[in-house]
């Protein structure tokens, strides 16, 4: 019988240090996760954790990890040529086909840029879709800006707002919480718009509120949830909220559904 728990050892081919605590690992892998899906990543003897996929390609995937936990700290010390164990991909992806004929606003806070990066990359790879894409990123400070070079590239193609929480001497861009910049996002046709909002629960709540005040409806907002999933298979119960399992029914939820997910 097929055992979904069995992971595959994948070789690390590249490591990029993004910030003080964030690293992007490129792994050899035959899986092709969809935008917003996640994989269970492990080092045997250390542990396993759900990590969203931040890049995909032919024969490779990328994972951006934040070294804050037992496992992620161990991963951060891995070197090119070593192996990480992967199973997945899991979860419901962003419905990117639905976004094709619409303006897509992607609002991400902090390391939550990772789970939307493949979505952004695929949008911007297509000239027509790129023209209908808007990006809004909030970071804590200049040092925590993730994918800095790539964001610079994106900003040349589409409206890209990057803000940091407080003024800093090394920063001459926008400051203040992401919510305070929602008003500046260029939305040509409210009814033909989808908004993807990813970040901590509080950020998603208040950023959504800002988009509502601009006339966006609940059905146009898409969120991605993060929970402590131990299996990714709808069994362990850690990610259950109400009658939904974040790992199998999410992590992407439309706002009107997410609204009723009370922890």
């Amino acid at each position: 019988m097929n055992n979904a728990w069995v992971p595959v050892a994948n070789r690390i081919t590249d490591i990029i240090k993004e910030t003080d605590v964030e690293y992007t690992f490129t792994l050899e892998s035959s899986i092709r996760p969809d935008h917003g899906q996640f994989v269970e990543v492990s080092i045997p003897g250390i542990g396993e954790a759900p990590i969203s996929v931040s890049g995909t390609g032919d024969g490779w995937i990328q994972l951006t990890i934040r070294a804050v936990g037992h496992l992620t700290c161990a991963i951060s010390t891995c070197k090119v040529g070593e192996q990480l164990f992967i199973r997945g991909p899991y979860g419901v992806a962003f419905p990117s086909a639905l976004y094709e004929n619409a303006t897509l606003v992607v609002a991400a806070g902090g390391c939550a840029v990772a789970p939307v990066r493949t979505l952004i990359r695929s949008r911007l790879a297509d000239k027509k879709l790129a023209a209908n894409t808007r990006l809004l990123f909030g970071f804590k400070n200049p040092e925590s800006v993730l994918y800095k070079d790539e964001i610079d590239e994106w900003s040349k193609l589409v409206q890209t707002i990057v803000t940091i929480d407080k003024e800093a001497c090394s920063w001459n861009g926008r400051t203040g919480l992401i919510t305070s910049h929602v008003a500046d996002v260029d939305i040509p046709d409210l009814s033909q718009t989808h908004v993807v909002i990813v970040g901590p629960p509080v950020m998603m709540k208040y950023t959504s509120a800002q988009f509502f005040s601009r006339g966006i409806k609940q059905e146009q907002i898409w969120l991605s949830f993060e929970r402590r999933m131990a299996c990714g298979l709808g069994k362990c119960g850690h990610c259950k909220i109400d009658n939904s399992y974040v790992c199998v029914d999410g992590p992407v939820f439309r706002y009107d559904k997410a609204l009723h997910l009370i922890d």
């Binding site: 019988m1 097929n2 728990w5 899991y90 069994k235 199998v248």
Partner: peptide, 16 residues
Amino acid sequence: AIFLNNGPSPDPYYKQ
């Protein structure tokens, strides 16, 4: 319901 029917596949350990 959970171990055999929820999620993408039955849990092999439970099912066994």
